[in-house]
Design a protein around this nucleic acid. Structure first.
Length: 970
RNA sequence: GGGCGAGUGGCGGAAUUGGCAGACGCGCUGGCUUCAGGUGCCAGUGAGGGAAACCUCGUGGGGGUUCAAGUCCCCCCUCGCCCACCA
């Protein structure tokens, strides 16, 4: 293993044995800090807006086409950065700098996602207020990132914890709360369904255009009754939701924080599934638009697939089975297999279970339900488990044939999906087949599997399912599928079968085609301290009201009581008390909400928002970070994020490039899209989507090692290799390969790299390691390669003894000039496509060629420096001054035009073609670049190797690919 | 179990999408500089054979299409990520 802590300065620790002006880490350090101060002082990276507080319309016009580039913003952790963190940031910085040089007005900054658990945990342990640690961490992280030379507009760097920021997070919440989803209103895609102000709904009730649920006139409803009706429509609403309640911690925890044995990740306390009143967001209303608009986004198919699967839209039917308890409704994607339904299964939690359970089965059912309740979801979802279940004693009627089929309960049916009840078709579903086999239930055959299905399973073709080893899942002709008014027999594919039965079910009134989603509404409240308070107060009747906009923000109250109240770990009946609940002075307020009720006493909502809230809209605040009148000026949003029909006709708008890790593929990206669509529907933004183009950067990987106890050991002290095994202090350790991380004890700090090589070398190395979207292993010893390259570059332009430029004004020779222009051509293409690794390789080739010349001609030196400016901005600035060109661009290379290739120099007069004999390269021939097929054939046939191979005969075949190669088949 | 993606020198990775495999960098070998180590510089470096020109083999394994395959098709193996009793 490499040992970065032994690295001091790669040039050696003595300053006397190398020339005074060699490009060393010390020189890099000096010039990097100097240029960073200069950029700050000059406001070099400040980006003008068309309107609002940061407006400079003339400069906007001057800078050129707009480009909005954004990284997923970090949580300001206290443990500092390692070299893996800035990979994506360096990529976006290089791209932003390149785009500035090619005539773009680039919006590029970085904020902080600073609400959340770690600061709160730390506060509970130390008593330090989370605001204090958060601000310290942000300051530290800003310093570390600044040292990398990132070209952020620092005026636009926001923190989600700043009241001037979360004021607008609360404002957006109010907008969402005060709106409803009208499924019949036309939206911008030409289909229907969009958010509208809740006042529109109230108007519909008032006018009688829309009937109230119980038919009474709106005017006759009490305030609470009205709120109850509206709550069923609001996009943000309070509802009983199943949550993980952990009395030992005094809080609700996320599914991810619950261990496999149903205990809390932290503290190892029991966790109980409980229904509790929580804030929810009606994201399910947007399920279709969230799926459909994926087609308009320039995102990878992998991420789109993940989002589609998460939303989980499936087409099917709801079918009613009559029972003693009433109609049991099931959801099925295969209504065409209804004739094969030989029993039903309800989730143990299904509300009909009590009334369906007969006296004889009561004990068995009660026992089973108790067991199911104590089981964690994780257990229930282990599909390798044997099927368990119990008969309720009751029967239901299959609507297609009137048959009485038994109703069972089993934990493989989940209350949270579909209707919590299924019809079991054992011949066509593996789970149902397994269940029927375990409990000896009938398995009627309703499809004729093809012959090779039987062959595959090694059995004789037969419709006797007792010979089948498993269910048949597929498309095949129906059998035994007919009643007096419906006949599926003879239909050979499931699409037709489904159409036929859906029509019949609807005609009979016993079912209807429907669409089901896996997506659930979004649980939006947390009983913690360090988050955005809800801008909501509750009146004495228990109805919620949003605080008027001019009273925002509702500031998080200052307190030293950050901890939630904890209970006996086994006290399942306890209820959460959030830290804010205890602040009586804050909780109880007298306010005039401006709704005509005058000053009233209210209780503030004591929940806080989840960490996702602040990240749902931060790109909008980057646009107008200091605007006090709006979350951002309409004109600015339209400029930076408006739809680009020049890119594609159905372009949804949004930022031009969003870079971040794939771990946010679902939750963050889905939540942000949802909020953005609500803002669009309500007319607050011109873009339909927040992120037009998404790019997932890879990770820096490293080996980590654990000892016998499973504890991580310092990876840099581990000895050995894969063959001989690894040891730490003589003891064997286990290697695991994954993302670099401080807690894995394999993190390399960027500070070590600055000290040994400088920031430019680190930037260049990270960009040269491979494609930006690929994960790559970190090897500290590899970094020296780019350091040596920068030294050669420096030496090609600067005298190491005097520090003076050695660039000459004589013109370059033809070969060098051609190489330069070919390099420019490739580098432009590659940088534009975020392929920095190949761009760097080309630039190194050019520089290597310069090394062989007696002196570097100015006509090559200048474009070379400009091409490198996005990658290694500090040394590029320094060299730009040294070669004497800084005066032309106001002292900085940042807005200098990127070199352009002369097309005339990209073509050669003559080209060398490989000559293949039977597909193998055996010779080469030089022909003029515009040589026709005939000329090339003649040249090839005259080649000595070809003459020898042909031995006087004629070639069997002669293939000429003009400009590429010749293949002679003998 | 399902979905997505990837396997190229000792290592990280190139290869204009079917047309000269291994660009560029690390490492390694030899040389120069140095009292020496390090730094820096120059040259070589896929494997095997040969004094050399050159020859043979070679992109996880097996088969196929083609004048031509890392690239396209079929089967298999390995690894990574996401989802996972979703009816």
């Amino acid at each position: 293993m490499s040992e970065p802590d032994t690295i001091t300065d790669a040039s050696g620790d003595s300053s006397t044995d190398h020339p005074a002006f060699r490009y060393t880490a010390a020189l890099a350090d000096e010039l990097e800090l100097r240029w960073q101060d200069r950029w700050d002082a000059d406001g070099t990276f400040e980006t003008p807006n068309p309107a609002g507080p940061l407006a400079d319309p003339d400069l906007v016009a001057d800078r050129g086409e707009k480009l909005f580039v954004q990284d997923m913003f970090p949580y300001p952790s206290g443990s500092g950065l390692h070299v893996g963190h800035p990979l994506g940031y360096i990529g976006t910085d290089v791209y932003s700098r390149f785009k500035r040089m090619t005539g773009h007005n680039v919006l590029y900054t970085l904020g902080f996602d600073a609400f959340g658990l770690p600061a709160e945990q730390y506060a509970m342990q130390t008593g330090t207020h989370p605001a204090v640690t958060t601000n310290e961490n942000i300051a530290n992280m800003r310093r570390q990132l600044r040292r990398l030379g990132l070209s952020h507009d620092s005026r636009r760097s926001v923190s989600t914890t700043d009241p001037s920021y979360y004021r607008w997070t609360q404002w957006i919440f109010s907008q969402i709360f005060n709106s409803w989803y009208d499924p019949d209103a036309a939206n911008e895609t030409g289909s229907t369904g969009r958010a509208r102000p809740i006042a529109d709904l109230v108007a519909q009730f008032e006018s009688g255009e829309r009937a109230t649920p119980d038919g009474r006139p709106w005017a006759d409803l009490s305030a609470s009754e009205r709120e109850s009706v509206l709550s069923d429509h609001r996009l943000a609403y309070v509802s009983d939701a199943p949550v993980n309640w952990c009395p030992g911690l005094g809080t609700v925890v996320a599914n991810e924080e619950v261990t496999a044995d149903g205990r809390s990740d932290r503290g190892n306390f029991p966790v109980f599934k409980r229904n509790m009143r929580q804030w929810m967001m009606r994201i399910t209303a947007y399920a279709d638009r969230l799926i459909d608009d994926l087609d308009r986004l320039d995102w990878s198919d992998a991420i789109k697939t993940m989002q589609r699967n998460w939303i989980g839209r499936s087409h099917g039917a709801r079918v009613d089975f009559a029972s003693a308890a009433g109609d049991i409704t099931v959801f099925t994607t295969r209504p065409d297999t209804l004739f094969g339904a030989s029993f039903m299964v309800l989730a143990p939690e299904h509300p009909y279970v009590d009334s369906l359970t007969t006296a004889e089965q009561a004990d068995a059912v009660a026992t089973y339900r108790r067991e199911a309740e104590s089981k964690k979801d994780v257990d229930r979802q282990d599909e390798n488990r044997e099927k368990t279940g119990v008969f309720t004693g009751s029967y239901a009627t299959n609507p297609v044939d009137g048959e009485q089929i038994p109703v069972w309960i089993a934990d493989y049916v989940l209350m949270g999906y579909g209707t919590g009840a299924i019809m079991a078709v054992p011949c066509g579903d593996h789970r149902d087949f397994e269940f029927a086999t375990t409990f000896h239930l009938p398995i009627p055959a309703i499809q004729q599997p093809p012959a090779d299905w039987f062959t595959e399973h090694g059995i004789e073709p037969s419709l006797d399912t007792s010979t089948w080893p498993t269910a048949f899942v597929g498309d095949a002709p129906y059998v035994n599928s007919a009643n007096d008014s419906l006949d599926l027999n003879g239909i050979t594919n499931k699409a037709d079968g489904i159409d036929a039965i859906n029509a019949w079910l609807e005609a009979q009134g016993s079912g209807q085609a429907t669409i089901n989603y896996k997506l659930r509404d979004w649980l939006f409240s947390r009983q913690r301290y360090w988050g955005e308070p809800f801008p909501v107060v509750w009146d004495e009747a228990g109805n919620p009201h949003t605080v008027p906009d001019d009273m925002l923000p509702v500031e998080l109250p200052d307190t030293d009581q950050f901890s939630p109240r904890t209970f006996d770990p086994d006290d399942a009946d306890s209820n959460p008390e959030s830290p804010l609940d205890r602040l009586d002075d804050w909780i109880t307020v007298e306010l005039d909400l401006g709704d005509g009720r005058g000053v009233q006493q209210y209780r503030r909502d004591s929940n806080v928002m989840p960490q996702w809230a602040g990240s749902c809209w931060y790109q909008l605040r980057y646009i107008d970070p200091t605007n006090e009148n709006r979350f951002c000026e309409v004109e600015n949003e339209a400029y930076w994020m408006g739809p680009r029909t020049d890119v594609r006709p159905d372009h949804p708008g949004g930022i031009d490039l969003y870079v971040g890790g794939v771990e946010h593929a679902v939750l963050h990206l889905l939540y942000a899209r949802f909020w953005h669509k609500v803002l669009f529907d309500l007319g607050h933004v011109a873009s339909v989507e927040p992120y037009a183009r998404l790019f997932n950067q890879g990770y820096i990987m490293a080996d980590a090692f654990t000892d016998a106890r499973g504890i991580y050991v310092d990876a840099f002290q581990v000895e050995g290799d894969d063959e001989s095994g690894y040891t730490f202090e003589g003891q064997p350790v286990t290697r695991e390969y994954g993302k670099m991380g401080k807690s894995l004890k394999n993190a390399v700090s960027p500070d070590e790299m600055y000290e040994a090589y400088g920031a430019d070398t680190l930037r260049l190395h990270e960009m040269s390691m491979g494609p930006l979207d690929a994960s790559r292993p970190w090897e500290t010893r590899d970094v020296v390669g780019m350091y040596r390259f920068l030294q050669r570059l420096w030496r090609n332009l600067v005298d190491e003894e005097t520090g003076e430029s050695t660039v000459v004004d004589e013109p370059a020779d033809d070969d060098t000039r051609k190489l330069l222009h070919r390099t420019i051509d490739v580098v432009r293409t590659e940088m534009d496509a975020l392929r920095f690794n190949t761009a760097i390789a080309k630039i190194i080739e050019l520089n290597n060629a310069l090394t062989k010349l007696p002196a570097t001609p100015r006509e090559v030196a200048e474009p070379l420096v400009l091409m490198l400016a996005p990658l290694v901005p500090h040394v590029a600035e320094e060299l730009w001054v040294k070669v004497g060109r800084s005066e032309s661009t106001d002292g900085t290379v940042t807005y200098a035009p990127f070199p352009e290739a002369d097309p005339a120099l990209l073509v050669d007069d003559t080209i060398e073609l490989p000559i293949q004999i039977n597909g193998k390269v055996r010779s080469r021939v030089t022909v003029s670049a515009d040589a026709g097929t005939g000329d090339v054939e003649a040249a090839a046939l005259a080649d000595a190797k070809v003459v020898e191979a042909l031995n006087g005969g004629a070639p069997k075949k002669l293939i000429v690919v003009p400009g590429r190669m010749v293949n002679v088949v003998v």
